[in-house]
Amino acid sequence: MNMHKRIRLTPLDRQEIWRLYQTRQWRVTDLATRYRVSRPTIYKVLKNARLQSFSPKKSTNARYRNIQYGMKRLAKVEQSIQHRLKQKAKRYNKSYPGELMHFDTKRLPLLQGQKTTEARDYLFVAIDDYSRELYADILPDKTQHSAKAFLLSNVLAQCPYTIDYAYSDNGKEYKGTPQHAFVKACRDNGIGQKFTRIARPQTNGKAERVIRTMMEMWHEKQSFKV
């Protein structure tokens, strides 16, 4: 007999329930507690046992065994899960512009005709947490000096308000000793630094999301090497 691998009551369990009920006068509540099922389930087992039927019965409704019904049901379950996750998501908004500026870097993909041995440029982005004002530039490498140049020439030179904190991952272009170029540039301009938890890039989600959007837009305009 083919049975579901997680079935609660096997035919042997049903026979034992009937035996305990008949010979030892076990109560329905005690049987339900022992087999970890509901009382209505025990009543149903006893009803079938009186007819000498101890095998689980399949549904007589054909639509429950239809694959299309199963797919529709699965889609509804997935939608319900996604809805609950969105409700549980913790979102925050800063109080004023410049309170927190998100920084991130992305290596650009190979263009059509470009060799893998050739140097690739890097996309630097900075986005204000409150206003969503975006700054971006393409630089030849991912060093601390490029990060410093991006901060001074693109962000501070254009940003109309004071930046309190720079928020980034733990990459070498953003984090280092007090003499680190980007660290020193932040300190000289009165900008504090905050970093994401290690191996948790999603905590810098605003910068990650804007890079993804820019990459999608760029892919529509460029031909890349496959």
Results as ranks from 00 to 15, higher is better:
L111D: 09
V183W: 01
P201K: 10
K206S: 03
L151P: 05
A147S: 13
S131Q: 05
E133R: 15
Y167D: 05
K148R: 15
S146L: 02
L134G: 06
Q114Y: 10
G192S: 15
E118Y: 09
R209F: 01
F195I: 05
N170G: 10
D128N: 09
H180S: 07
R132T: 09
Q112V: 12
T105A: 10
Q144I: 00
G205N: 09
F103M: 08
K194R: 15
L100A: 00
K115V: 00
I191M: 06
F124I: 03
T162N: 06
T162A: 10
G171I: 08
S153W: 06
M214A: 14
S153N: 15
C159R: 00
L110K: 10
G190T: 05
I138A: 12
A149G: 02
K206A: 05
A147Y: 07
Y135M: 03
A126Q: 00
R197Q: 15
D128H: 05
Q179T: 09
S168D: 04
L156K: 05
Q193K: 12
I191D: 11
G176R: 07
S168V: 01
L108P: 13
M217C: 09
D169A: 07
Y135L: 03
A157N: 14
F124C: 10
L100D: 01
I127V: 11
I127R: 02
K206I: 12
D164H: 12
A199E: 14
K148M: 14
F150K: 07
T116E: 04
D188Q: 13
A119M: 07
L151I: 06
R212F: 03
D137A: 15
K184I: 02
V183G: 05
E216W: 11
V183D: 05
S131H: 04
A157H: 10
K172E: 02
P140H: 01
F103S: 03
K142H: 14
D188Y: 08
I163A: 04
H219L: 07
R212E: 09
R197P: 08
P140E: 04
K172S: 14
P140I: 01
Q179K: 11
Q112S: 13
V125R: 00
